[in-house]
Every structure is written in structure tokens, then in C-alpha cells.
Design a protein around this nucleic acid. Structure first.
Lengths: 214, 214
DNA sequence: TGTACATCAGTGAACGCGCGTTCACTGATGTAC
DNA sequence: TGTACATCAGTGAACGCGCGTTCACTGATGTAC
């Protein structure tokens, strides 16, 4: 039989998750550095003091949000890496995966884009660490590809950095495109334009990659 | 004879600039959305109410900071555009110009990177408008180059977007590299590594660009 | 040039408010026998 | 199974504090004659 959490632990987890969800919602229109502990507990419907049973302060909650947000992104990246086929199809699938990720987790994407260079150092650092980890993973995958024969480790890392940065920028741009249009038809068109540009940019990178060792 | 401002106007400008400078300093360790009006006036040494003689609120001050920060960046971009020579030299000079810009205006660069996706909508939009303007300008310059024969307007805009985004990312990365090392020798080394990577990335783009119409 | 009045950048006191943090508490859940 | 005690997630009241905003004001600067 599976190990079920005690009722107490399960309830605690539920409250913790409610705090994280409420915070993520509130962060749609503000930065973490201005998010108040009382705002979050008010949104959940618990007493302010209850916050301290789960987090030291809002920066601590922010770090937890980083784990959550980049955990989901990690899966998307892995899925994009294992894609096979010609470069054109791989580009299309990678961009489609990003677009789907943005639609599935818009608040997570916004949070990462906003706090990546935000005013809360521990959160900024947590994001930096994870993105560097993603880049290492992408670099390893690129190195395994026969196309990368003759590439130095440094060049592979550079290329991986381009891909990871491009992914974050594209995700954020898709989000922004969708948000800046009141009309939902216009929003979809704007998103499509961003997606088309992202594909074009990846094609440019692919061409550069192909001629890197010329 | 030159038109000198009245004493009153000159004093007002001086106070206004002091508010902007103080705010920029305070924003090194926080986001605009958590910057308090009283913090700023306290740093300058004027009464809180004096703030309202210059700005409606801190978001309004933030928009003024965008003008200031991107005004200086605009000059750097123009300088990078008019660079001549082989692609390798142009890349070296463009990256050197960015590095010099970061050293000359670190707080401006930090502000733009932080607020580009930050929690204050008017500021985010002001930055977006200006960066799009820069991209238009770069696209126009690229279009004038004989290398761009046969490129569609859309492709030129895409390439310009790559350059502008890369510039902002690189500036922010140089800053971060310099800040994350306590040791100043290590900081310089870290900055150099970022600069070397940025050059490599631009070389990749140049190669892609050269084979775009193949 | 001198005088009388207008302007307005900056003052300082006051306001109501929500903040983060602390504390002793309650009562449901967990545990030992 | 039942009982007695321990744990601890969440409560609610209290605290001191700094916030944004308002207002009548002051006094240097500007202007008209």
C-alpha cells in the first residue's frame, strides 16, 4: 500500500500550496519585492501569522516559486531536446512546445521573466542557477549530436546559452503579445507573429551552426 | 547670447535630477514597484511633499528614468551601427561599445534589465516602445547594407530584433558578472568571459546571416 | 533703479492606514500504553 | 479499543513604524510699472 501523509501534513501542504498559488496570482501585476505577506495570507484566507509556519519571508516563498516554475519548464526543455527529425521540423516542434508551455503556465513564465533580473537577490540567484543547469543539459545534448563533431566545449556552451536565452525571451514575448491585445483574436494573431519570428531566429542560428567550422 | 534658465527653473531642474539620481541609486537593490516616494526624498534631503512638484508618483519617475537610460543607450547603438570594416572587426567594436556603456552607466543598464519585464506597466511599456524603436533603426541600417540584398523587410526586422535583444542581454550579463565577484580581479575575468561569449554569439549570427538566402 | 505685487518650489505638521512581527492561545491530529 | 498526554498548524489581538497624501505656509525669484 502507498504511504499516505498524515491528515495534519496533508493539510499543511495544502495551505502551503494555496499560499504559493495566491502569491503567483498577485505577482501578475507587481514584483516580488513589493509583495506583502499580509496580501498573500488575505488572498488565501488565513491569519498573517500562519505564513511563518511555511516561509521565513516573501523572498523565501519566491525561491519556492522558482523551483515550481522551473520544474515545469525543465520538462518542456527535455521534451524539446529529444525531438528528432530535420532541423526545420525540430525548430517547429521546439517552438510549439514553448508556446504550449506558455499557455499551460502563463503565471510561471511571467514570474521567471520578471524576477530573472528582479530586485530580490536570492530569487535572482535561484533562477540563474537553474537556467545555467538547463544550459549545461542542452550543451550535453548538443555534444551528443553528430552535427557537433569538432565543436569545442566552450562553443557548445555558448550555443546552449543562445538556445536557453532564446527560449526564455520567446516565452516572455508570447505572453506579452497575448496580454497587450484586448481582443482575443488579435491576441492570437500577435502570438502567431511572435512564434513566426522565433522560428525565423532559430533558423538563423541553425544556419550559423551549420557553417561554424567552415 | 545663450538663453540661460531663470534661477528658479535651474534650481527646480537640479532637484528633479537629484530625485532621479537618488532613485536610480536606490534601485540597485530593489524594484521600482517597491520604491517609496519617502525613500527618494529622504535620500535627496527634501520634504516628501516636494516630490509632487516633479512627479505624479514613483511610476512617473520611472518613466523619466527610462528616457534618461535609453537616451544614453541610443547613442551607443548609433555608434555601433556606423562602425565599418570586416564583420570580425565590427563585432569586436560593437561588443567593446556595449562593455564601455555598461562601465559608464551601470545603474541605467541594471534599471532597464530589471524593469523591462518588471511590475510597473507604464515603465514596461515605455521600455518596450524605445527598444522597438531601436530595432527599427537597426533594421533600417541593415537594409542599407549591400549584404542585405534580397532580404525581406520582415527578415531584416527579425535580425534587428536579435541584435537589440542580444545587446540588452549582454549588457545585463556583463553587469551581473562584475557584481557577483567580490574580488575585482575575478570580476574583470568574469566580465571578459561574458564579452568573449557575446562575440562568439555574434559570430554565429553573422554566419547565419551570410547563408540566409542560400 | 526702486517698489509693489505675483508666482511657486520647497516646508513641516498632520491624517489615517496597512505593514511585518510577536505572543499566548486553541483544538484537531498523532502517539504511547 | 480506550485513555492520557504531546504536538503543532492556524488564531487573533497587539505593537510600533513608515507609508502616501493633504494642506496652509514661507520666502526667494520673477515681473510690471
Amino acid at each position: 500500500m502507498s504511504h499516505t501523509l498524515g491528515i495534519r501534513q496533508a493539510q499543511k501542504q495544502k495551505t502551503r500550496q494555496a499560499l504559493l498559488d495566491a502569491a503567483l496570482g498577485l505577482l501578475e501585476h507587481q514584483s516580488l519585492s513589493s509583495l506583502g505577506l499580509r496580501e498573500v495570507t488575505r488572498a488565501v484566507g488565513v491569519a498573517p501569522a500562519a505564513f511563518y509556519r511555511h516561509f521565513k519571508d516573501t523572498a523565501d516563498l519566491g525561491v519556492a516559486l522558482v523551483e515550481e516554475a522551473l520544474g515545469s519548464l525543465h520538462e518542456t526543455i527535455r521534451a524539446a531536446i529529444v525531438t528528432t527529425g530535420g532541423s526545420e521540423e525540430r525548430i517547429d516542434r521546439a517552438v510549439a512546445l514553448i508556446a504550449a508551455h506558455v499557455r499551460a503556465h502563463p503565471a510561471h513564465v511571467r514570474f521567471i521573466a520578471r524576477e530573472r533580473h528582479g530586485g530580490v537577490a536570492p530569487v535572482r540567484e535561484a533562477i540563474g542557477v537553474q537556467l545555467r543547469r538547463f544550459a549545461d543539459e542542452v550543451a550535453a545534448a548538443l555534444g551528443a549530436d553528430p552535427e557537433a563533431r569538432g565543436w569545442s566545449a566552450e562553443d557548445l556552451r555558448m550555443l546552449a546559452g543562445v538556445y536557453v536565452d532564446h527560449m526564455v525571451m520567446t516565452a516572455s514575448a508570447i505572453l506579452e503579445a497575448g496580454a497587450s491585445c484586448g481582443d482575443s483574436v488579435a491576441a492570437l494573431q500577435a502570438e502567431e507573429a511572435v512564434i513566426a519570428t522565433a522560428r525565423r531566429q532559430l533558423r538563423l542560428v541553425t544556419l550559423g551552426r551549420r557553417h561554424w567550422l567552415d
